[in-house]
Design a protein around this nucleic acid. Structure first.
Lengths: 219, 219
DNA sequence: TAATCATTCAATTAATAGCTTGAATGAACT
DNA sequence: AGTTCATTCAAGCTATTAATTGAATGATTA
């Protein structure tokens, strides 16, 4: 019988191992954007349905996702507990320690001069001046629980549908769950590709709220 | 060529995979307590030297540890970046989501009534009254960079040597790097086994400092 | 009750990771 | 220079893990 300490490490390793697959990380991302069926997740990730199902079951065993039956489909959603915090922690570490990650992020965002994030103070100033559109790219339910005042909620998957609400000549400031949330990476890349001027907010909603700035809650 | 998003996930998965082994987590722990040679680490973990070396090289590739040559030995130490934060995040998640981890931690500490951690306010009060010994079980270099006022530094590995400094009839409050740092688990278990009355501080040094309480720095 | 559909299970193969062994490196001591 | 010692490398074996296929389950609909 191994020592309790080693037993704890074995459990931690078990949980870390589940995160050690790009496919599973991607599944967590999609699932964190809202309930999805296995078929839909398979489609989004490009995996076969059976394979997706197996990955989802590993994720469920680790508590990262949970499932419920809805008619003939099984819907997966994000588990509870500090999952996003854990992923943010991993990504934060990666961005500081892995030159490769920095390089990819750099390319992804395009030129370095465009990359510079907007500070909270800058944002407030420019919102006052009325010359920016503030975009919240988190899923609707997270938005409803609290968002930056005046933000427009356009969940990542629905970006295409809401393009008409965006004025191409106004700069857009996008934010999501935190400085290392991959949602805003996606959003910024997609909008840049369409010719919009977009920058990221320095950090995400949790940091904004923690800093004591005003927060709006959906009615 | 996979999409940049997938590339990032591949990198993150790579890093997570390195954490997906109990032996490697244990190695990180030992290495975080100070520079250690491969042979020493092999001895501490019970692995063969070659095997230890290989694990260390994986850890080094992930940036979790670094190495330097000292004479005929190679000394490994903790890498930089938010490694301990990442591990704390993992452990926090585990303790909330894994019944097994909670069970092990429960057993490890003994009865639940003894488990209750000491709050910061309680600690201050009781330090004022002078009826507790405050124990910092982090490595010496971390202690020197800042610690709770009046704390006694007894790094985990040297606990045996310093037993004489502890009065058995005074209650001991131990703290380390954070609420999920495994060092204090070890310390509390070891001291309890010797009959001391020990409790953990509610959280560790980083939280204490962040909350704005007084901090002492070694001269 | 049978048919349909989404998901899961079970079995297989291919790829990967962990551990051991013995040889190779590289620094220090004689 | 040769010897010793700590570490790393390389090869081989075993155990896990990933992905594929086809069958089984479980809930709806005809």
């Amino acid at each position: 019988m191994p020592s309790p300490k080693v037993q704890i490490y074995e459990q931690l390793a078990e949980l870390a191992k589940v995160l050690g697959s790009a496919h599973r990380l991607e599944l967590i991302e999609y699932v964190s954007q809202g309930e999805r069926s296995v078929e839909r997740l398979a489609e989004l990730t490009g995996l076969t349905v059976a394979n997706t199902s197996q990955h989802l079951q590993l994720l469920r065993r680790g508590g990262y996702v949970r499932s419920r039956r809805d008619g003939k489909r099984v819907l997966y959603s994000l588990g509870d507990g500090p999952i996003l915090a854990l992923l943010a922690s991993l990504q934060c570490y990666a961005e500081r320690n892995s030159a490769e990650v920095r390089a990819i992020v750099g390319d992804y965002f395009g030129k370095l001069d465009q990359l510079e994030p907007v500070s909270r103070e800058d944002l407030l100033q420019r919102l006052d001046d009325g010359d920016v559109t503030l975009l919240d790219v988190r899923p609707e339910d997270e938005f409803d629980l609290g968002h930056l005042p005046g933000a427009l909620n356009v969940p990542l998957g629905k970006l295409e549908l809401h393009l008409s609400e965006l004025t191409p000549d106004r700069e857009i400031v996008a934010y999501c769950r935190g400085p290392y949330c991959i949602l805003s990476f996606e959003a910024v890349a997609a909008l840049r590709a369409k010719g919009y001027r977009v920058r990221r907010l320095q950090d995400g909603f949790p940091e904004w709220k923690a800093a004591g700035y005003a927060v709006e809650v959906s009615p």
